[in-house]
Amino acid sequence: MNLLRTYILPRILQWALVIFVGISATFLIPRLSPINPVDEMIGRMTAFASIDPHAVVSMRESATALFGLEGTLLEQYGRFWARLFTGDLGVSFGNFPRPVSDIIAAGLPWTIGLLSVAILISWVSGVFLGALAGYFHDRRWAQVLERFVVVVYPIPYLIIAFVLIFVFAWWLKWFPLVGGSRGQPGLTWDYISTLLYFGFLPALSLVIGSTAFRFIMAKSLTTTEIASDYVQYAELAAVPKRKIILFYVARNTMLPQVTDLALSLGALFEGALITEVLFAYPGLGFVLYNAIYNADYNIIMGITLLSIAGIATASLLIDLLYPIFDPRVRLR
């Protein structure tokens, strides 16, 4: 009960606050801009054809209604929330009558699939490689590995992905340049193998950067951990090294890594957006990229909203699961 009051409830309140602030920001930002999206849209439509002025006026009215731009700012804000609660994100202007929620639903599984695989691989490999390199810090391979990671870690994600594309997809032609899969979707090996084949390079590009980050963090945590008494005692007691690393050191360094996973979800999601643009992977990032080019504001806003809500919720879940990993939180 105490845990509920001191830990869970404040965390849930904070989650609600984040979503509220994020959604209000996505509502306000387009309205602060000097560019009127209605005029933009009408300008694009009338650019190559002469249209009856009356038609333009009625077009403007319906576009204003479509954008939810009628009435005062406060009225718009109220309607914005009302529409959100019914799951209505408006319609896309690029593919006109198709609702935004449809388009997002089509892209979402791709993004979630790519992201969860990349997070899982990079987290596990980063934590364990970091623990190994931290424990055997005076071995040659550990030092070479660390040098490599220090060089790779700060490189902007975009450039890593570009290099992978040009080397493995364009030059060596080992992997496809664009797309997410080939053939008829289904649970057949043929289809799943194309999924893996197309997804390998995008996932690899995400894994490289985030593994480097985890590795650096795990290594510095391990360096602190191996100086502690219990490790020295275990070594004196001739406990096998494998057991010390896997069961004692790595487990203890995992706790901050779990908390940090919640914080770095946003960064990973951002990475995934760029991945999909570069690899033309059919997830949310690719949809977003096309929406930017078509000035399709409803889609851009929809994806921004979803990413804020999604990341806030995911980090809430990780934080709520935290007491399971860390008994000290439970005790308090």
Binding site: E270, I274, I311
Partner: peptide
């Protein structure tokens, strides 16, 4: 927690 890149975009 607010993802920055979507907002920037």
């Amino acid at each position: 927690v607010v993802p920055r890149l979507p907002l920037l975009i």
